[in-house]
Nucleic acid binder design. Structure first.
Length: 301
DNA sequence: TAAGATAAGAGGGACAT
DNA sequence: ATGTCAGTCTTATCTTA
């Protein structure tokens, strides 16, 4: 468990889910730390989730005028409960914000399914989206586009590389618009993104194409060497990974075209060519004899 | 058919005005 | 704020093996 220096939020380093929204705000705690506290819970049922518009508290007050033993309520109690019920429903739905969240999180679930993303990322996205809504960044922008941006941030932040393009495509959102929103969120929410390690991208591309384990390892070796020689900064990590993989394919005699890898990586063939020329040069590989693997250094085999 | 080469253009960051 | 600049990446087209 760590806490955010700026906002004072506590969140889990492992899964990224926010545990305590504001430290001095005692109402928002939903992780019980002791058995006692757990037993005192008045709520039961599914665990709360940030990806529900009301954090999963939708049914605090039921519709029947019965107490917890099933006995009817006194008339005094009844009016109290009725009043509470009004507040309850207001806090659930009366704002446009809530409606927005309901719709957005429905969309988010759908999107996460399509992209096969873990729950932690969904939670993180929901959290970011809430923040964006609080800051009134959603107003005047479409829900899907903000969602795409938030999802991309969540992915990057939790080391689950998904390009903004992939997300935007799944969401039927213009990439250009999505990247604008992405930067907007970064700036407005004061977020800092870790630099994507291109090595992480390799296995995704490799498995998409169905490459051998050996070529994958070769690509990682190439890429790590390139990173250590500091020739990778400013380059698209996906392009670097794709280039390293292609290089490794050539070395290992795998008959895979640039086109296939380019498609899997979401970059162009030209970009792969440019990158892998650079890689070959800095790593001192001889690229002239494509099918002569003997000239390649051992680490890449 | 795959890969290389070249050129034009888009988009965004850095930096100065 | 606005403009310029270098660098990256994409799209398109032609050539080469």
């Amino acid at each position: 468990m760590t806490s955010d220096d700026v906002t004072g939020e506590k969140f889990c380093r492992g899964c990224g889910s926010v545990v305590l929204e504001r430290i001095e705000d005692s109402r928002a705690e939903w992780h019980s730390s002791s058995k006692d506290e757990y037993d005192n819970r008045t709520r039961t049922g599914s665990p709360t989730s940030l990806a529900m518009h009301d954090m999963g508290l939708a049914t605090i007050i039921g519709r029947q005028n019965k107490d917890s033993y099933g006995k009817p309520l006194s008339s005094l109690m009844k009016s109290t409960i009725t009043r509470l019920r009004v507040w309850d429903s207001r806090s659930q739905m009366h704002e446009s914000a809530s409606r927005n969240l309901t719709e957005a999180f429905g969309e988010l679930k759908r999107l996460a399914d399509k992209l096969a993303l873990p729950d932690a990322v969904v939670e993180k996205t929901a959290y970011i989206y809430r923040k964006a809504l609080e800051k009134h960044l959603v107003k005047g922008r479409s829900i899907p586009v903000l969602l795409a941006a938030a999802l991309h941030i969540a992915c990057r932040d939790s080391g689950t590389p998904r390009t903004l393009r992939e997300i935007a495509d799944q969401n039927n959102v213009k990439i250009k618009y999505a990247s604008k929103c992405y930067r907007l969120l970064l700036q407005e929410l004061d977020l800092r993104m870790p630099v994507v390690n291109p090595v992480q991208c390799i296995s995704r591309i490799a498995s998409k194409v169905g490459l051998k384990e050996k070529t994958k390892r070769g690509a990682i070796a190439i890429l790590e060497d390139a990173v250590s020689k500091d020739v990778t900064s400013g380059k698209n990590p996906m392009a670097l990974a794709a280039a390293a993989l292609y290089l490794s394919c050539v070395i290992n005699g795998d008959q895979v075209s640039q086109k296939v890898i380019a498609l899997a990586a979401g970059v162009t063939e030209v970009t792969i060519r440019n990158r892998y020329k650079g890689l070959g040069k800095t790593l001192d590989l001889d690229l002239s004899g494509h099918h002569n693997s003997n000239i390649m250094p051992d680490y890449a085999k």
